[in-house]
Amino acid sequence: MQGLTFDIAHMLAGSLVLVSFMQLYQDRLSALLNMFALHAFVLAASVAWQAYAQDAPHLYITALIALVFKAIIIPLALRRIVIRLGIHREIENVFGVGLAMLLGIGLVALSMVVMLRVTSGADPLAREDLAFALSVVLLGLLMMVTRRNAVSQVVGFMSLENGLVLAATGAKGMPLVVEISIAFSVLIAFIVIGIFLFRIRERFDTVDVQAMDRFRGEKR
């Protein structure tokens, strides 16, 4: 039974990394949002499995928060924003897909090497979880760096935060209050960013951050 628990946790965390990769090469915004919803859903499943495996019922609440807010409300709201901004058909791509994938693979390898070295002696489940979580965080950052659309940067930020939650639930004994406050701070960040998106749009007629750079009188 221990083996199966570990395998399933491993598989769910691995799927989260896989979905992160899938986000990397989505060049349409609506597809990206779908992927983000999937990402949050996998996160919720993973957290729920951790709750079962660690016999920690409060983690179910965490999973529920992830499911309701991140997998349903935020993607829906973002989709509304995208449609109201009229950019749901826009195509953006900064890097080639191949290059982005190669970079992503490199990052995952790096985080594996670092985490497995650093946490030697810890619980194997937590070790794997931490390694995957760091990969998710790095992939989210990579997405923020490579995208130039503000909405995709928001998605990158949110998936980065998913990685943090995964790491937190992997470590046993994280208090619920920390989890809830993280969830709410992300929600507030989302609201603020959403407001800013509209303000930016009003002023510049676009949410392409390059336009803002041009406005500041700089060339990239």
Partner: peptide, 17 residues
């Protein structure tokens, strides 16, 4: 630009790792 800053932070993190 904002993206350059993000890239710098990202590069610093990766290098430290």
């Amino acid at each position: 630009t904002i993206r350059s800053y993000l890239t710098l932070v990202f590069a610093a993190l990766v290098i430290l790792l």
